[in-house]
Amino acid sequence: MPDWLTHTLTGWLIGKTTKINIALIVIGSLIPDLVKINIAFTWLGINHLHVFDPLHTPVGAFLIAGIGALFFEDTKKAFIPLSIGVISHFVLDFFLVHLSGGTRLFFPLSWDKLNYSLIRSEDYWMTICAIIIAITVLIIYKFYDQKIKVFSK
């Protein structure tokens, strides 16, 4: 996985540039990594038996997004940004270098793991790039917002 900061910043960038609910895209971008519940079991010395693995598949993550969306006034309007976040997560993960395959994109129909080895998970330059792009976009938007305010006066 790329780190969560890269995932959330990517979600933020998508939300900011598309004017879709930023907060829900960001939350959606973290949904597949709910699979990290595994870590808690590992710390406790308990074998998790791969029970949580489906959370890190598109089907599982969309189902969680669907459950989450039920807690909003407009379920459909919440589900769309959550799903965009989920998709952004899998797009980033798809490009991670693995020796034994990446993500089970077509689970439960197929157990094959797919990836296109491009970026190493420990590569912090990806995070630095995401931070720089996010700050640049933030500055551009602040600049244009100020310009619009001046013109509207």
Partner: peptide
């Protein structure tokens, strides 16, 4: 559904 997927995965 997600519960069934988890069981299937396990």
């Amino acid at each position: 559904i997600i519960g069934l997927l988890m069981i299937y995965s396990s």
